[in-house]
Design a protein around this nucleic acid. Structure first.
Lengths: 218, 218
DNA sequence: TCTAAATTTCAACGCTTGTTGAATGTTTCG
DNA sequence: CGAAACATTCAACAAGCGTTGAAATTTAGA
């Protein structure tokens, strides 16, 4: 059998690695810190995952498929329930963002660390080009195709720049830096994903319409 | 003989540290890499800056004041030229972003590295709380105050979430990951700050108006 | 020029790093 | 049971780390 038994120590290594990598980055974490956090000998990480970089990749692969299919399902669902014109910009962005919230609300704090790790990757000039495309290009292309349909007058260049803005706003949200908490004097909370998305969806949708809409300046 | 007061080796250490920290983060760079890049002995970095963390801070402080005053000047200028109602949302965001472009166009590639380093800090759950407030809180508060005046019906909470979206979009732009280049098939270029801001300004302004405007849903 | 200070290199330190091979403990299953 | 397969720990390695004191070099000022 390939994966019959749950391997609790192996999972704990992944959990701790996920959390520490998200907080300190790849180079900011040692295998000994991870092993200590997991209550395990250092050599066990090498036994299960090989090199440090392989462990890093394993952390990603563990949740990638589930996350991508959840977001794709949300897109398909809003496409199904739409009329012949297809879903609106708001609906598409909602499908892009809400599954991230659901992932968090499974009660598994690992999801929050995982999303913060993705934020770290996405914003890194070193890791971004090495990891993001492989993990998310296909999914993103599908969302952009849906947006292109909802904004038939958009130029491709404008569409991609707008997605870039969305991606940036989302990335900073997922990074959970707590900066907005301090800046707003507690009026906004980084951990409140629902509030973040409730503001992000109309904000981004209006931006898309402004830049990619019919009357956009060319 | 070249001027000794300019301390060329000290500057070169800062230049190389700036570039490498921006690319690999604090823990991803060793003092020996920096020294090698600067053509200098390792111990010289310690002599000039003390601990590694002090060098990291010195990289920031070198350009912080100049950057902040350039952005503040831009805000003051657009406030001067506005009527009694104050500058528009677009004008304020323009004043927030354009000085970053000018900094790049001095021809000094160090500015680009510096801005990428700020992006790294701003997106980091570890460094963000430790460095961003000290460097930028005062400036950001002034811009938000101006936006509050331009959007008199806005709730503070909405205003801060909108700024968060702006900050995220800007951060991903400064990080220069090249992701949009690949995704757009070359139609958009990460290095093209002017194009990025030309799209970001109307995008973000429309978002602010949507979320913070008179008819915003409450 | 001479001298003191500032700069830069040299050499080394004690520690930590990722990784590995062998030893020990634990399951699985005929 | 018994033995093979898997899981885990132990001990150690060579390499690289940040940091430091002393020596060498360069500069500044009289």
């Amino acid at each position: 059998m390939s994966k019959p038994r749950s391997q609790p120590k192996r999972e704990r290594i992944l959990d701790v690695a996920e959390e520490l990598f998200a907080l300190h980055g790849y180079d900011g974490v040692t295998l000994r810190q991870i092993a200590k956090g997991a209550g395990v000998d250092v050599a066990l990480a090498s036994y299960h995952f090989g090199k440090k970089l392989d462990l890093f990749n394993a952390v990603f692969e563990r949740r990638a498929e589930l996350l991508n299919s959840a977001r794709l399902d949300a897109l398909r669902a809003c496409q199904q329930s739409a009329d012949s014109q297809g879903p609106s910009v708001e609906q598409i962005i909602e499908a892009f963002l809400r599954p991230l919230e659901l992932a968090q609300e499974t009660g598994d704090p690992g999801w929050q660390h995982y999303l913060a790790l993705i934020a770290y990757i996405n914003n890194s000039p070193y890791w971004g080009p090495r990891m993001m495309s492989k993990l998310f290009d296909q999914l993103v292309s599908e969302f952009i195709a849906a947006l292109r349909k909802a904004l038939p007058d958009a130029r491709d260049e404008d569409l991609y720049w707008c997605y870039h803005n969305l991606s940036g706003a989302l990335t900073l949200t997922l990074a959970q830096t707590g900066r907005i908490d301090k800046l707003s004097g507690g009026k906004c909370l980084s951990a409140d994903f629902e509030a973040a998305y409730n503001h992000m969806i109309p904000f981004v949708a209006a931006g898309f319409r402004q830049v990619c809409g019919k009357s956009a300046s060319r």
